[in-house]
Amino acid sequence: MLTYLSKRLLLALVTLVLVSFIVFLASDVLPGDVGRTILGNFATQAQVHALDVKLGLDHPLLDRYWIWVSHFVRGNWGTSYTLQVPVFGLVMRHFLNSLILGAFALVLIVPISITFGVLAATHHDRPLDRVISVTGMSMLALPEFVTGIVVLVVFSIVVHWFPVSSSVPVFSLPSIVRNLFLPALPEMVLIFGYVSRMARAGTVEALNAGYTRTAVLKGLPRHRVMMRHVLRNSLLPTITVVAVQAGYLVGSLIVVETIFNYPGIGNLIYTAATNHDQPVLQAAVFLVALVYTLSNLAADLLYAVFNPRVRLAS
């Protein structure tokens, strides 16, 4: 278990270093002449150079990377080019908003998805399975903006149940539901697709496994076979998917937050990208990648906790 843990941690760390380097490269090298971009075509070369020096752009690449990383670790994330506010607070505020939205979607849809996935598996190749599978797959295929638009048309314009534009809810149930339900819906559609599919596949496999045959032929009651033998094994891979999805979710909010004007991290990244606001972009993108990597790590750990083969390995 300890070797497994340390190995996973090390891998995550290596990934993170690579991730940070990619982020740095993408936002530092790709845009080319940052000073010129910011100051526009009418600035003199001297003005551009002065800005480059001020921003530290005259240092060698690796030095700049190191400076950026060491600042980043200390929470010194720079100042937004366009908004002229400290990046740390800006990004964190948006990130928190996204977290609230993401958590709302996950908590609501994951149990439903697993239930339907398991239901499909126990009705393998029968009509109910086909309906659930095809529905799940279609949901998986739909881009968020398509579901988002349809949801908006139906719930805000046709029936007026929810506002067209969402904001961060205050801590009360009506406010949460009113502000988060619509933007969460397209996400929930996607998650349902993923999770129900995984739960179904895992359960079908477990139902066909030798140990399930053993359990049935031991004459155990059906509920005992399902709970203790089938689901205990089949939901293991599903746990991993949920954890990975949790990380992915934060990043994929970009479209939904744009549609619903929700002040989350996706919205921030999109605005920063179109405005070439490099420090904000760097920090926000890195944060998303960090969350993704950490949730992957969490998935591995969860898997280890529930799997005695890994847990007990010396």
Partner: peptide, 23 residues
């Protein structure tokens, strides 16, 4: 494979936004 892992840590749309907005 480590590089692939690192690459996959970025949601697809974010990479696209990043690159296309710059290029």
């Amino acid at each position: 494979m480590r590089l692939v892992d690192a690459f996959l840590a970025f949601p697809l749309v974010i990479i696209a936004v990043l690159v296309l907005s710059l290029l």
